[in-house]
Design a protein around this nucleic acid. Structure first.
Lengths: 338, 338
DNA sequence: AGGAAACAAGACAGCGCTATCATTGTCAAC
DNA sequence: GTTGACAATGATAGCGCTGTCTTGTTTCCT
């Protein structure tokens, strides 16, 4: 007797036989119940429940040449900023028919390109990519794929398709303007991992200082990945070079927290001796002693909006605006109040 | 003329035609090149490159009734602990043929069960689940699936299949023993989100106090999700109830950091007036002023080991030991040095 | 030289589903 | 009564790949 290759699972035909209809009717009933008569639908639903039928997604994908996968490609899973965005994505995807698949570039453009290729080969329903600095090849792949794409984290000119984020340059500028208004004049920029977003924040820092006609030669950066410890080191190095600095604009909150701890270690009073401003407004900024000024960004909402834009585009009713700017809020706290 | 349903992509047969062999030979060449002659292999490789052939994973999955998907199901993407584990998983999975698919339970057993069902219906190569507190139905599903499964985060009796983690009870006990050795006697437990792992840490806390014959009625907990701010609140509530407390064992580092900030706010000297010990040893613990004692857990290695165990099990050579205990290290720092 | 064993490659069918076209029955409009 | 529109359902043929079996070819041993 010929050995069957069947997986042992309940198939559409089994359901069809149990419900007394043909397989195709079951298929239709499950995809769009309005196309099937009430009686048949009821019998099919019973049969599905009785037999414990679970559709085979591979067969669905092969036959229909599409999937319900939304791919999200982010640089890091451990960075709090991206994990918040991811949380927003998960929240929004719940209750939709879509399933999330995650890719992790580790901040390299090449890995991003590889991931885009891998994801596209699976014919995803939509794709979420981070930032606006894709390689030309990646942009081309995405543009010609026919798959809806959302770029998140940042706004900028020339979106691949859809976009949701904010201007890092304007946000940094607003933060530094806040420091200037608070009376600080020798304001340094502390930054790690000078990725493109960081570079644009540096531009915003320069914009603000330029407008206020302030000497700007107070930039401490390192290519190393950001961390709280590194924030302390950066402040230490800065103070060694320029002991007269009176405030630091930190490229992110980890660095700001590290700077605070370093200041405490050196008995530098914050905010009177040193003003500290971070970026992103992670949860601990409010809890710190003194509480730390930061720039609030809308990360959960960014993830949620990305999914909403994508869902609409997939379903054919594209939103009027391709680019959604969620803005930011400078959130002054004790660390810059003097 | 009949309209073709073809996806427009290059298929195996296209490659086969270009290489002058049959489709099945190309399939074999791509899966195990040793089964094909050198000449044919070279021609096939050329054809693949020339045509830009990308396999259709849905067709592969349907025909072979298996995939190269490893599913990972974790409670939260924003919790640093899990994101570190996830990073370890991604690191280890690179260079293997497997692809990661992530599920997010948000700390609910029901969602976990749903995700396990969804993942299993895709016939994954292996599955990673978090903790040892799966529902009986989930355990049964996993056990009968035939899919290799690793439970991560914790060790315990009766593994579903494979297991890698450590004993939270012993780790908490060791931390509290450290506090006792440092001379603290009125030691409180601060905990948020009393999930099963937290409960077992509480047991460890009680073990240590019981052994030292110390009164243990100093437990402050809340069902709310953990955060730095909450750590401050918990310490505040504790001090209102028991101003004579001399040390806190915090269920995680966020709470420990919040407790430190709250102590600073109240001008309570750490470690002389209050000892603080956290759990997990996140990066900022070392950077804090004073640096914070914690229990180091091997999160990256946990993720990596999970993938290794799984890969071995998938390939048929199961490891000798089903359960890998990665242990922990109490890491004493300034916050408990008196 | 003869035959077993090992190797290389192909034929064929089918995995479980959906696109497409065809068929049937019902009912309102003329 | 005929017609056409529409709703409900079915038959058929794949989607692109791999499992299984078969056929041909080479190698090596006795």
């Amino acid at each position: 007797m010929k050995k069957s290759r069947r997986s042992g699972k309940v198939t559409l035909s089994d359901v069809a036989a149990a419900a007394g209809v043909s397989a195709i009717t079951v298929s239709r009933a499950l995809r769009d119940s309005s196309t099937v008569s009430e009686g048949a639908l009821a019998r099919i639903e019973r049969a599905v429940a009785d037999l414990g039928y679970v559709p085979n997604v591979a067969a669905q994908a092969l036959a229909s040449n599409r999937t319900n996968i939304i791919g999200a490609i982010i640089p890091s899973v451990t960075n709090n900023v991206f994990s918040d965005v991811l949380k927003g994505i998960y929240n929004a995807i719940e209750g939709t028919p879509y399933q999330l698949q995650l890719g992790n570039t580790r901040y390299t453009v090449l890995e991003e390109e590889r991931l885009v290729r891998t994801f596209l080969s699976q014919r995803p329903a939509g794709l979420i990519v981070s930032g606006i600095d894709q390689s030309p090849a990646t942009r081309e792949l995405l543009k010609t794929s026919g798959v809806p794409v959302v770029q998140i984290m940042e706004t900028g000119p020339d979106p691949i398709d859809l976009m949701v984020g904010f201007s890092h340059r304007l946000a940094a500028r607003a933060a530094v303007e806040h420091l200037i208004e608070a009376g600080y004049r020798r304001i340094a920029f502390l930054g790690a991992r000078m990725d493109p977003r960081t570079q644009r924040r540096l531009l915003g820092y320069r914009d603000a200082l330029g407008d206020a006609k302030i000497d700007e030669d107070l930039i401490m950066t390192t290519p190393r990945p950001s961390s709280v410890i590194l924030g302390g080191h950066l402040l230490g190095d800065l103070l060694a070079r320029r002991p007269d600095v009176d405030a630091v604009f930190c490229n992110n909150d980890d660095i700001a927290l590290g700077a605070l701890f370093e200041a405490q270690r050196r008995n530098i009073a914050v905010p009177s001796g040193l003003g500290i401003c971070g970026f992103n407004d992670l949860e601990y900024m409010e809890a710190a002693t003194p509480s730390l000024t930061s720039v609030r960004t809308h990360r959960l909402q960014m993830g949620a909006t990305a999914v909403e834009l994508l869902a609409r585009a997939i379903e054919g009713n594209r939103p009027e605006a391709d680019v959604v700017d969620l803005g930011f809020d400078v959130t002054p706290r004790e660390s810059t109040r003097r």
